[in-house]
């Protein structure tokens, strides 16, 4: 659907976990290619290996075998520090249960990745404000998470995810903890971010949510296949 340079490429990605004496193979040779500006949904039931795939895409984990290029760079056996640098520059995470720091207000939550990206304080301030305005929370910048609704909290999390201007927005069940109406609002926000040219990879078990994406891949028992929503 969307054309553009290839921003993510996976070839034969496998992931094995040692469970006692048994080796459990969670991903069985995944091939995947994502272009800049795509809105991709990875659809699969729980236990299908989609979380593991998300961890590998998000550079939280490294594959047992296979090759993974992100933004042209091969992600091989990196140590935790280099993975942290890659995450900081390339990935914006959005989680099902928002994961905001409860003791800090919206403003400071959005500021956090910018601190880790070593952005100078003055630039940081401008950027945090810009992001919060973008997600429509200009009047709630200094509210604590517990003073915000679920939808508002997820919008803070989205502002936080896009603050560093990452290559990929990686969303894990972004509407899973929201009611239908606020879920729809979050999806609207995703659409407008995608319209700006942001690459979004969304992981979900919900085919209705997946239908928002421009392209859908299905994952089942560690294998991936393109398209087809009907029997999800």
């Amino acid at each position: 659907m969307t054309s553009g340079e290839e921003i993510l490429r996976m070839e034969g990605i496998t992931k094995e976990y040692q469970m006692g004496d048994e080796v459990s193979v969670v991903l069985k040779g995944i091939d995947l290619s994502v272009n800049r500006g795509e809105f991709l949904a990875v659809l699969g039931p729980s236990g299908s290996g989609k979380s593991t795939l998300m961890n590998i895409i998000g550079c939280l984990d490294v594959p047992t075998d296979g090759k993974y290029w992100l933004h042209g760079n091969l992600i091989a056996d990196e140590d935790q520090t280099s993975l942290a640098h890659i995450r900081s520059a390339e990935i914006g995470f959005i989680f099902q249960s928002f994961y905001l720091l409860q003791r800090q207000d919206a403003w400071h939550n959005v500021e956090l990745p910018l601190i880790y990206a070593n952005m100078p304080e003055r630039k940081r301030k401008e950027r945090v404000e810009e992001m919060l305005i973008k997600v429509g929370l200009e009047d709630k910048m200094f509210h604590m998470p517990n003073q915000l609704s679920g939808g508002q909290q997820q919008r803070v999390a989205i502002a936080r995810a896009i603050a560093t201007n990452p290559t990929i927005l990686l969303a894990d069940e972004p509407t899973g903890a929201l009611d239908q109406k606020t879920g729809a609002q979050v999806m609207d926000l995703f659409h407008s971010l995608n319209d700006e040219g942001r690459t979004i990879i969304m992981i979900t078990h919900d085919s209705k949510i997946a239908a928002h994406a421009g392209r859908i891949v299905r994952i089942l028992d560690g294998n991936i296949s393109e398209g087809a929503i009907e029997d999800a």
Binding site: A84, H85, R87, F93, L112, Y116, A117, T164
Partner: peptide
């Protein structure tokens, strides 16, 4: 914090 890019 680590997911958001904090180094160890």
């Amino acid at each position: 914090r680590k997911a958001l890019g904090a180094e160890p």
